[in-house]
Design a protein around this nucleic acid. Sequence first.
DNA 1: TAGATTGTTAATCGATTAACAATC
DNA 2: TAGATTGTTAATCGATTAACAATC
Lengths: 224, 224
Amino acid sequence: MAIVTAKAGPKLQSVQRLPAYLGILRGMLAEGREFVSTSHLAEVLKLPAIVIRKDLQMTGITGTPRVGFDLRFLVAAIEQFLGWNNTKDVFLVGVRGFGEALLAFDGFGTAGMDVVAGFDRQPELFPGGVRGKPVFPIARLGELARRMHIAIAILTVPDTDAQETADVLVTAGIRAIWDFTTPRLCLPDDVIVQKAGLISELAVLSKRLRERGLTATAEEGNSI
Amino acid sequence: MAIVTAKAGPKLQSVQRLPAYLGILRGMLAEGREFVSTSHLAEVLKLPAIVIRKDLQMTGITGTPRVGFDLRFLVAAIEQFLGWNNTKDVFLVGVRGFGEALLAFDGFGTAGMDVVAGFDRQPELFPGGVRGKPVFPIARLGELARRMHIAIAILTVPDTDAQETADVLVTAGIRAIWDFTTPRLCLPDDVIVQKAGLISELAVLSKRLRERGLTATAEEGNSI
DNA sequence: TAGATTGTTAATCGATTAACAATC
DNA sequence: TAGATTGTTAATCGATTAACAATC
């Protein structure tokens, strides 16, 4: 009666480390550097060199002994491996609250992602859009997704609307959802649901705090 | 010459799953339920029951055969294990951009965290604060942290200011940082740095998209 | 009692780490 | 050539999964 969990695909941890490599490597490239060895990268990133070598292996790139990796090729290889070489336009659904911040943020460009529009049940709350990005009623999502060939959506609606909105997204042709809501969504298997892990990170942070005895309860009467 | 990575502590993955359990369990509690079995939880969460049992074991709670776990005790045990039973006040540093959204967001209460104030190099940009939360110049951080006994900060400054600002935080007595910047911070060992993984999550999402052949490049002329 | 569920102990699996051969 | 660095193969480690005994 065991339930099969989503299969791992390529090593999860390795994929997660790649963006950090990419950041450093892009910086080195901008500085005009041409080659880099894993031992040097290891020193900068404070990671074991063997970890980095194994991770890079995954991208299919090959270095040259005694020289290292060609920086330009290496950056290109990682970008291609992640699909960050071409920008994907995405929609953000649920602008009130956390979504507004994400919509205003434009730091996902390095990750090949451009949030081009927001959708909300009450678009009238954002008459001029958010930082130049328009906010539409959810009813228009299907039409616009088709017209703009959008396949990815960020879901930041309130938890109570999560499943219902997700269903709308799927009907509208969305194939991948970056999900910031807490409930577990029930969607067709061919739709990719990537859970955002902010709360999980807080759990880890909290645990580490407790381990060090920093359970510092907010004390009484400490108003600003 | 191997570099020692931060030791794992209690099983990382297990800790990360606890918030999901807690969400469901709190809901069940609100519905008036009194007991829950891991098999039932497993069904709801679509996870193998053995995983949940092992995870719960970590919190130290004990169930009763044939009955399951006392919901009230279970919720309390998880909250205590994570330190989410008492609210911790935190500062947010770097309000422009992504930080503003986080400051406006108040969904971390369930995780025992309350963002009480923002700090920015240009506080004058936020005359009335953000959603009622005041924004101070960074120069006042030390004074206020001491007065309010704040030990945790969320770091959302631009990458270029990250290290410098982090140093200021440590001097101000901050003992734990939830770090949304990309560079690797160099700080004393006794300061907890928890990296936010948004970009890593995007890497995983991108990879999964590519695996399914959804490399959908944004096409030409698809303006809104 | 009978049977469902917990808790524990063992087995499997995968990832990380180490050792070393290949190579420029 | 000599030596640094890659790439590969083996060993270790830890986490997940399975099996089963304990228990209410």
